[in-house]
């Protein structure tokens, strides 16, 4: 908490007059309300498995997941996690990663674990964090 306060303090103390520290141009303020939910980025993949998987996922979302409500407490959701996992690695590792995610999803005490919270209030848990590559692991927020 102290860290956050501290960072806020820094922002406030330096925000003043910073506008002009970079040359700016004329710009219109948009009247529209900003979109609440950022558009889901569609995974684009050139590989055959990726394309197959993505179409499978589209069918899944058209037939089922669009209608059964927002059940997954993770971001990305389990289906997206699986697609990401396979795209990052291969079908076998991807399946193992999905098995692990599935197990963790069954855990009703997720709150005591160390997930950081995503902006949308879900547990931030991208597939890339499970590729065993230390350099690629990312956290959105400091987790105390």
């Amino acid at each position: 908490m102290r860290k956050i306060l501290y960072i806020l303090f820094f922002l406030v103390s330096t925000a003043y007059s910073q506008t002009d520290w970079q040359k700016w141009e004329a710009k219109q303020v948009s009247y529209e309300f900003p979109t609440k939910s950022a558009a889901q980025t569609q995974n684009e993949s050139a590989s055959l498995t990726g394309t197959l998987l993505n179409s499978l996922k589209s069918v899944y979302s058209f037939l089922i997941s669009d209608y059964d409500g927002d059940n997954c407490p993770f971001s990305p959701s389990c289906a997206n996690f699986f697609v990401e996992a396979v795209e990052e690695t291969n079908l076998i590792s991807g399946t193992l990663m999905f098995a692990d995610r599935f197990t963790r999803d069954m855990n009703v005490f997720k709150g005591v674990n160390h997930y950081s919270l995503h902006k949308n209030g879900k547990y931030f848990d991208p597939a890339i964090n499970y590729t065993l590559n230390l350099q690629k692991i990312k956290f959105e927020m400091v987790n105390n």
């Binding site: 529209e32 309300f33 979109t35 209608y67 059964d68 409500g69 927002d70 059940n71």
Partner: peptide, 24 residues
């Protein structure tokens, strides 16, 4: 129950979305 709850959730979200579009 899952689809029933999802249905209510969707009804609400679509209505909010629609109003949002109208305003914008």
């Amino acid at each position: 129950l899952r689809f029933y709850r999802g249905n209510i959730e969707n009804a609400k979200n679509f209505a909010v979305e629609k109003n949002f579009e109208v305003s914008n």
